[in-house]
């Protein structure tokens, strides 16, 4: 996620969201989904994509997808 938004890892915390990261726009979101799918070898479905509203939720969705 730090790579996609060109940030340092320390600049991201559980509450990081499109509101706190300017690069996290709709295109950034698409890039984030692609990068996560590639990194964890998972497929994130449409509903989950819409729910990824901050870093904490992103992490939960990744965990969920990896189980399933």
């Amino acid at each position: 996620m730090a790579d996609v938004f060109l940030l340092d890892i320390n600049e991201i915390d559980a509450n990081s969201s499109p509101d706190s990261i300017p690069q996290w726009d709709s295109i950034g979101h698409l890039n984030l989904v692609t990068a996560i799918e590639e990194e964890f070898g998972i497929k994130i479905d449409d509903e989950q994509i819409v729910q990824m509203l901050n870093f904490k939720l992103v992490a939960e969705i990744v965990k969920e997808s990896m189980k399933g």
């Binding site: 996620m1 790579d3 996609v4 060109l6 890039n31 692609t34 990068a35 590639e38 990194e39």
Partner: peptide
């Protein structure tokens, strides 16, 4: 190259 790495390298 992973997409995330590519974005980072591209910027550099």
């Amino acid at each position: 190259l992973k997409f995330s790495e590519l974005i980072r390298l591209n910027n550099e």
